[in-house]
Design a protein around this nucleic acid. Structure first.
Lengths: 216, 216
DNA sequence: TTCTTCATGTAATTAGTTACATGATTGA
DNA sequence: TCAATCATGTAACTAATTACATGAAGAA
């Protein structure tokens, strides 16, 4: 009856589908438990609204990649999803494919991009907000890292993989903070009206020079 | 008749709306010209499909923030959009507001997050892809930077602002590349089956230590 | 025992993408 | 003169968000 083919025929799987499949591969969960996992880890690299985590597992179940066990808490329904063997194979196949590069969206950078249509004060405030963001995120990250080091992380068996991603975030936050410090210096030398800002040639050369790392 | 209030009453403006409003503040453009601008700059920090750039300016025009001039090229219609004074005020007001922190989405990092459900080879390939991505993006960035330095950039009057954003991207690409080099070392020491990977305590301490920059 | 937070979900809406269609321009 | 690429736009679709509703559990 089956063609022994693990490629799903129904609705196409998105990265979000695979992300949730991955969470289920770690442990069976209700949608609410998935939102917790999103909060402490995955959400930093693949942020999604909670409602997605109620909708998406249904799709996985419909495709035979997960199984839904209906239960209840008092009068309420409660559904726990588990990955199936087919789901594990599908996840493994996906992991072997290339994967798209990072996508960055930054409203703050958009504001800085158009800073010459506002005031220098606005730009400095935006830069300060970016630095504060980096510091806040980093502290979270450190908390989780220290917990793992102390043997208190929730999934000790996953610490090796978690560390690789954690290291990336650490470096990202540090980079944002260091850039913000630099940008504060540069923009701090602008006149009140940014349209009067002249090219800081030295800073520009420094940037182009730093960027030279990959160019032969 | 008017309440002399610049807050728009119709459809809410999104960051994408303001991004396009900003582009129009720099110069009047057709939708196609907007796609070019997206390609060389803004798209790196606020990526959007071309079709958005045909749809969104209509909304701006409906709100009185932009004006649409209908023209033609041969038989075809061609619409050029310009910002209005009200549009400039609205843009300036937006620039004075805080702005959301960066949002990162990385399919590659998601794959690494679940690397223990695939092979070590898969993980190394993903890391290599991330490095290649950083290198490629950086070369683009350098090209643009050098052009500005040589006085060839298209909007010399905007070089001061562009540089602040360009510097961020430079540092981001460099960070990705350096992280990839580090990750390659760490994952290279894993056994074939990543589930057998034990915590590289030294690497973990290094990460936590690096992350210590903002913690007192 | 009442208030708040945790937990479980659905419905309505929207922002965004992919796919398509076709005329204009350039250059081999 | 024909093919490729540039340029201009619409239509269909979907992934994702926001808003809403409400029961359960714990705390004051």
């Amino acid at each position: 009856m089956s063609t022994a083919d693990d490629r799903p025929t129904g609705p196409r799987l998105t990265t979000t589908s695979y992300a949730i499949l991955g969470l289920l591969a770690v442990r069976s969960s209700s949608s609410y438990e998935l939102t917790r996992q999103m909060g402490r880890g995955l959400g930093r690299i693949w942020p999604r609204a909670a409602s997605k985590l109620y909708e998406e597992p249904k799709k996985l179940a419909a495709l035979g990649l997960a199984r839904a066990r209906e239960g209840s808490v008092g009068e309420r329904r409660r559904t726990v999803y588990s990955i199936t063997p087919k789901g594990r194979r599908t996840l493994a196949a996906w992991l072997a494919e290339p994967g798209a590069g990072p996508v960055l969206e930054s409203e703050q950078l958009v504001k800085l991009f158009f800073a010459d249509h506002g005031t220098t004060r606005d730009a400095l405030a935006t830069i300060a907000a970016a630095r504060a963001w980096a510091e806040e995120r980093n502290e979270d990250n450190v908390r989780v890292g220290r917990a793992y080091l102390g043997g208190e992380g929730e999934f000790q068996e996953r610490v090796a993989t978690n560390m690789v991603v954690g290291a990336f975030l650490t470096e990202l936050y540090r980079t944002v903070a260091e850039w913000a410090d630099w940008a504060e210096q540069v923009v701090g030398r602008w006149p009140e009206d940014p349209r009067g800002a002249t090219l800081d040639r030295e800073a520009m050369e420094w940037v182009v020079d730093r960027a030279g790392w990959s160019v032969r």
